[in-house]
Amino acid sequence: MLTKRIIPCLDVKDGRVVKGVRFLGLKDAGDPVAIAKRYEKEQADELVFLDITASHEKRKIILEVVRETAENIFMPLTAGGGVSDLSDVRDLLNAGADKVSINSAAVKNPDLIREASRKYGSQCIVVAIDAKADGEKWEVYINGGRTPTGLDAVKWAMNAEKSGAGEILLTSMDYDGTKKGYDLPLTRAVSKAVNIPIIASGGAGCPEDFYRVLTKAGADAALAASLFHYQELTIKEVKNYLKKRKVALRC
């Protein structure tokens, strides 16, 4: 049986993991490869690297990070953040990413999804959607959540699928960082509308939150960043909880 996935996200800036990691026993708490190894030991099902490097000249550093991680850790790896054209997709895949996530550039130029999936296969193209509630609907924001687009998140997800996306990484801007749980209505609405896997993101605070989004909102995977970074919860604790509640998991 296909299992649900628990995915830690590492925010990488100038080649270093940020968010004040407090892992014990690591020589260098901001070293992406060391942290990735730690997550691998904890039985993370996948890793996501999100590059939040601001300066253009330092943007190539993420390729080094991906390269070094892929050479040391034999598990699925998604990279994204600032992917703007086909050559960015190619560079990340060549560095060793299995999937590349595209956010703003996909909105500005939906042909990018089409071209990237035709060239490299749908299975490696993830479209990341940042959504914010607007009445009964959700609006898509780009540029790190700063720019509203007027697009309806559910419709945009359907378009992304039609263009060749193989997966949706869906972040609730309203819930992100609140620890009050994932946005179940948003996740459910998108999951019902498309036939590709959904990674839910934003709002995880306790194991129950993972349970809810994976079993009641149609998510195929649940992502968390700071929760795992700060070791408020370990992946193992989340998995143990879900296993007790009969969620299909790899343990």
Binding site: E46, S122, G166, E167, R250
Partner: peptide, 8 residues
């Protein structure tokens, strides 16, 4: 759901 993606 297609692709079949993940651990099985």
């Amino acid at each position: 759901k297609v692709p079949h993606m993940g651990w099985n």
